[in-house]
Amino acid sequence: GHAASIVLTYANFPPATTFPSIQMERWAKEVEKRTGGRVKVQTFPGGTLLPAKNIFDGVVAGMADIGNFAMSYQPGRFPLSEAIDLPVGFRNARAASMALFDLIEKYQPKEFAKVKLITVFTCPPADIMTRIPVRSLKEIKGMELRTSGTGTDVLRRIGAIPIGMPQSEAPEAIQKGIVKGNVSSMEILKDFNFAAYLPYAAEANLFVVSFAVVMNKDRWDSLPADVKKVIDGLSREQAEWTGAYVDDHVREALEWSKKKYGHQVIRLSDADQSEISRLTRPMIDDYVRKVTAQGLPGREIMKDVYALKQKHEKKYR
């Protein structure tokens, strides 16, 4: 047998218990298994090897061989994937992840020219978790809500006051009343124990946050052909696995929160849902205008996003 002859380092920014880190461990295990133990993956969760916003550049420079990062936290840098973050109303992470995967596969954007793309995925759609119940769109007018990524623009347009701050500062801000809630995907209710101070959630499917896993190009080129084949073979599968895993995890988190804290999910009315779409529609037009000016086929990208959304949501409910 072979001893582990190839060691790959994998940098990740959120804590070990969160889904981006769990997908990293799963990927590491699969690669080790499928290469018969020849490849060993050393994982670094929690930003210990590279901080969140330096993972892409750090991988290009070779500080880590592989890195997972949130494209949405660096606006302007990954224009194609921003299309997936727009408020188009994805209903689950599995469909959104597959749509992102197919979109990048089709357009082969130049922002990934310097790296080898390992996989992509998204978090589940963001909902509005609050201290007091929000039963209609009217009730969030003027409410200060913590968010990140595309969320600031979305919240501003639907009448709330977005406060951009890292997830790590949210609990204190909520307890002090600086913000009245958190707009994010709902697995954090359990993972970060937000259910303890945010007992209500309004389901709104506002937006997703998209992640990419990339590898240093020279490191990739140095790998034997059969190892490359294993990694390539895992690419699409990993995107789907992660989406499915985190969707299940949200369901589990909601059940846990309901049992432990009596957490309550409120469904916004259809009228409110379409009002959200109407109010955020200009963001999509802005996006098309912006990327078209950069030389990308904006209108075609958006058409593809809607088509992919429909296609994958038919498959994954």
């Binding site: 901080p51 750090g58 070779g62 701050m165």
Partner: peptide, 25 residues
Amino acid sequence: VVYVTSFKAALGMIGADMWNIFSSY
């Protein structure tokens, strides 16, 4: 870091890390 990884990697780290620390809220 230069010894364990490479000079290029260490250079990339130092720039971004310093900026991250200096601009931390």
